Simulated scan of single mutants.
Amino acid sequence: MRQVPITRQGFESLKKELHQLRKVERPGNIRAIEEARAHGDLSENAEFSAAKERQSFLDARINELEYKLANAEVIDPDTLPKDKAVFGCTVVLENIDTGDEVSYQLVGPEESNIKEGRISVESPLGKAIIGRKLGDELVIDAPGGRRNYELVDIV
C-alpha cells in the first residue's frame, strides 16, 4: 500500500465526511429505500431506483474514504524545515513579468483546492515548487502560457 501524505486538517476533514456518510447519509438512504419499497411494484418505481443508485454511490464513497484514511500519512508542517519548499508549507511566488504575487500551500492530492490556495504536491505546479529554495526561479507551463516565477517566501 502506498502512503498518501496529508495534513492533520485534511485528515480530520476526511474523517468528518466519513462520519457524516455513515451516521447521517447512509441511514437516511436506507429509510428512503424502505419507503420506496413500500410503494409496491419495484420495476416501475423511480424513487426506489434513485435510492438504490444513491446507496451505491454512498457505499463507494465510504469505501474510498476508509481506504484513504487507512493509507494516510499525516504530516505536521510545523516539524519540517523551512529552508526549502516541502509538503505542508505555504509558498509565495512572484510573477517575474508582472510583479503579481500568489501563495499556495503544498498539500496531498486529497486536500488540494486551488480556490482555497491549496495545490497538490503531485500536480505539475506542485512538482515544480517542491524542493525549491528562496530566490529560486521557476518556469511553469500553464494553460495560459509559460510563466516565470521567483520563490520569495516560505511559511
Rank of each mutant, 00 (worst) to 15 (best):
M1G: 11
Q3C: 00
V4H: 02
I6S: 00
R8W: 08
G10N: 07
S13I: 06
S13W: 05
L21V: 09
K23W: 07
V24S: 08
N29F: 05
I30C: 00
A36L: 08
A36P: 12
A36C: 09
A38G: 14
A38C: 02
S43G: 04
N45Q: 07
F48N: 09
S49F: 12
K52H: 08
E53F: 08
R54H: 14
R54W: 03
R54F: 07
L58I: 15
R61G: 13
I62L: 03
I62G: 09
A70F: 05
A72R: 08
P77N: 05
D78Q: 11
L80P: 12
K84R: 15
T90A: 01
I96R: 03
E101T: 15
S103Q: 13
Y104A: 02
G108C: 04
P109D: 10
N113Q: 06
E116H: 10
E116Q: 12
I119F: 00
V121R: 01
E122N: 11
L125G: 04
A128F: 06
I129H: 01
G131L: 02
R132F: 02
R132N: 09
V139I: 15
V139E: 12
A142H: 08
R146I: 15
N148T: 09
Y149M: 02
D153A: 15
V155M: 04
